[in-house]
């Protein structure tokens, strides 16, 4: 059997109504991002099929699976996790769960400022957490919280240093954040979670030999 490193990594993120899939490694760097709404079951596998077709691959060509493991919307997370587990069952691939908020935060850590990343948890709630960069990875500063958006704005307001706030934020929350001089809010298209960031984080885990047990891996729910 070929080792996982000889074959590309499939990335799956259905943590919220914004979904994405990606294919990275061994000459591949492809991703699809779309608004799945609550129809993740309808679109996720169809998009994976499309992504592989675009890249001239079949399922047996895959070497590993990485899945966004939450927090996020409960059913969205379960769709992503079920597809990932189905792939492991059918193809016997190594599986890597990756924190959804870290995926949102990762692209901004190069700024050397701390990053607060948010994901929409449904019913107007946000789950968010703060991250900072380390040498070759990212680290969580404080445990994620599930709050109304104004608690996130308040947390950003009380900071003295420069900070980036990214992820799924509604217009009202963005408007409140941009009035704060020390807060940097990337524009909406740049705040979208990217499967490429998922691939990078999974790569760190892969390098450390930290694959997940497909029986034990489950979504991080973080209800209110």
């Amino acid at each position: 059997m070929d080792s996982a490193a000889d074959k590309p990594l499939l990335c799956i993120d259905a943590s919220s109504e914004q979904a994405g899939v990606g294919l990275f490694g061994r000459g591949h760097d492809a991703e699809l991002i779309w608004r799945a709404g609550r129809a993740q079951t309808v679109t996720l596998l169809a998009q994976i099929h499309h992504l592989l077709e675009l890249n001239g691959l079949v399922p047996a060509d895959l070497g590993a699976v990485a899945v966004a493991s939450g927090p996020g919307t409960f059913n969205g997370l379960r769709v992503g996790m079920s597809v990932a587990k189905g792939l492991v069952l059918a193809l016997d691939l190594p599986l890597y769960g990756v924190d959804t908020l870290a995926i949102a935060a990762a692209p901004w850590l190069a700024s050397n400022a701390p990053v607060i990343a948010a994901v929409a948890a449904g019913r107007g709630r946000l789950v968010w957490a703060e991250y900072c960069a380390t040498a070759d990875d990212i680290s969580l500063v404080a445990e994620p919280r599930n709050t109304a958006p104004d608690a996130l704005v308040e947390a950003a307001r009380t900071r003295a240093d420069r900070i980036v706030v990214t992820g799924e934020l509604d217009a009202e929350t963005v408007a409140a954040l941009v009035t704060l001089d020390h807060v940097v809010v990337p524009s909406a298209p740049l705040r979208v979670r990217r499967p490429g960031a998922l691939a990078w984080l999974a790569g760190q885990r892969l390098a450390r030999g930290e694959a997940d047990d497909p029986v034990l891996l489950e979504p991080r729910y973080l209800g209110r």
Binding site: V83, G86, L87, L89
Partner: peptide, 20 residues
């Protein structure tokens, strides 16, 4: 139940797809 059904449906769909 929607949240329960989607586990079996997505695992089954993915296995069928991956195994052709």
């Amino acid at each position: 139940l929607a949240g329960s059904l989607l586990v079996g449906v997505n695992v089954a769909k993915t296995m069928a797809w991956a195994l052709d």
